[in-house]
Each structure stands twice: as C-alpha cells, then as structure tokens.
C-alpha cells in the first residue's frame, strides 16, 4: 500500500494554494514586526501578532491537509522538515511572546521562519510519500517531538545571540537603538533558558520514543551516528540548563553553553544529511 492510497484526496486541491499563501503570510508578519521594532508608536505593532497567529493557523491547516492527503505526518523530505521546523519556531515564539508580553524580538525570529517556509514552498515540489512506518504511534510521536524540540532550540539560540549582543552593548556603554528596543538582559537570558528547557523535554521525549520504536521495529539505532550526536547535544544543552538553575550560571557563560549544545544539534543534522549513512537521512 502506498502513502497516497493510505490518505484521503479530498483536501489535495487546497495544498498548492496554501503552499503559496504561507510564505506571503509570514512575509507580512515579518514586515509588521519590523515596523513595530523600528517605530514603537507604530500601529503595526498591534496587528503583527494577529498576522503571525493567522499564519500559524494556516500553517497548521496546511500540514494537516498534507497529513490527511498523504496518510502520515508530512515529514518525508528535508523541505517538509524545514516547513515543520518553521511552524515549530513560530509556535514557540508566539508562546514566549504571550508569556513575556514582548514583541520587539519577533523581528529576529520570524525572518528565519519565513526563509525556511520560502525554501520549503519553492523547492518542496510534489509532496514526497513514504511507506507507513511500523508502530506508527511511537514513530509519529518521536518525529513530532523532535521537530518541536528543534523549534524550541532554534528560538533558544536566537535569544542567546540577542543576549550576547545586548550584553556587549551594555558592558561597552554603547547604548544604541538596539539596546532601547530590546527587553531587559535578564529577560533575554530567561527566554534563552526557558526555550532550551522546553527543547530538552521535547528532545528527551523524541529520543525515548525513537529508542522505543527502534526496539519494537527491530532497528538497531545504536549504530546510527545521529542517535549519539543528538544524545551528545542533549547532554550539552542539559548541562547549560542545569548550570543556570543549580550552579547559578548567569550571563555569557550560560548562554555560550546553550549555544554550544545547539551548534552540536545543528551539526548532527547536517552531518546526518550530508556526510554519513544514517537511518535519519532525508532522501
């Protein structure tokens, strides 16, 4: 049975339209957040979050339509992975924005979301299909948690970089426009750690579900370098979060530790896709 046979074709006509609409919605969100960043009295600061939430909703509809049509989570290609990660980053950002009430950092997060979705929409082509996995519950939860985890780590890394830029400005007494528009340094540090903590939980779930699935499906994941690279990255990030909470690490040291974990995670993705044969390589 192919993936297409497994799915329902009813939502198929919607997909090309949403593939085009999504980057446009993200572009509009980027424009609104850019305006809000540049001019604090701008009214666009009010409609930016609304636009972004609309984009998120459309993105969910798009991925759901793909899922219904294809009969499995739409994560069959690297372009699918980019789109799902874009959604995940946007969702984590919206959550943090709602919690902290800070909108001026959106401009540093959303262009990445936009870029990922543009690449996915432009080069994704026809939706790729894959054989439905064995033990789909374990597999799909593993995939979903991993994508959400990547999104959280991306957001954490962006706030980490913003923290370092802000830290440097304050230390050197160069208090520019960037300084005025950013939230407090302490908040940036907290957002970095909060997003990393969420990423850790999600990635731990992804790893556990992956290992569980491997055992059930008889796949020896211990031989897959991706497994060890991800666990290594998880440990580094875990140490960064632990150091923040338990060892009282504050400032650049804690941020550098979390960035090191994120870099390892990103490197593991690149290495898996480009240089080694791995069960996780997108084809």
């Amino acid at each position: 049975m192919t993936g297409e046979e497994a799915g329902s074709p009813h939502m198929q006509p919607l997909i090309p339209l949403l593939t085009t609409v999504l980057p446009v919605l993200y572009a509009l969100s980027v424009a609104a957040y850019a305006r809000a960043y540049a001019d604090e009295a701008s009214m666009s600061g009010r409609w930016g979050p609304g636009m972004l939430r609309s984009a998120l909703l459309v993105h969910l509809v798009y991925l759901s339509a793909r899922g219904v049509t294809e009969g499995h989570l739409p994560l069959a290609s690297v372009y699918d992975f980019l789109s799902a990660t874009a959604l995940s980053i946007a969702a984590v950002y919206v959550y943090l924005e709602l919690r902290q009430g800070i909108r001026t950092t959106g401009i540093f997060v959303l262009p990445i979301v936009f870029l990922m979705q543009v690449i996915s929409s432009a080069y994704g082509g026809e939706p790729a299909t894959r054989q439905p996995p064995l033990f789909p519950f374990w597999f799909e939860i593993h995939t979903l948690a991993a994508v959400l985890g990547y999104g959280a780590f991306f957001v954490s890394a962006i706030y980490g970089v913003l923290f370092l830029l802000m830290y440097r400005e304050i230390k050197s007494n160069r208090l520019s426009f960037f300084f005025r528009r950013m939230p407090p340094l302490e908040t940036l540090g907290r957002m970095n750690v909060s997003a990393a903590s969420a990423g850790l939980v999600l990635m731990a779930l992804a790893i556990l579900m992956g290992i569980g699935w491997g055992r059930l499906a008889g796949v020896d994941l211990a031989k897959d370098p991706k497994t060890w690279l991800t666990i290594g990255a998880w440990l580094v990030l875990g140490f960064a979060v632990l150091a923040y909470h338990r060892l009282g690490w504050r400032g650049p040291r804690a941020v550098y530790a979390s960035l090191a974990g994120f870099t390892t995670l990103l490197a593991s993705r690149v290495v898996t896709d480009l240089f080694v044969r791995s069960f996780h390589t997108f084809r």
Binding site: I170, M182, P184, E186, T187, R190
Partner: peptide, 8 residues
Amino acid sequence: GLAGKVLG
C-alpha cells in the same frame, strides 16, 4: 531605566 534594562 538602565537598571531595568539589565536586571528586569
């Protein structure tokens, strides 16, 4: 203002 920007 500066204290708020550093310490929240």
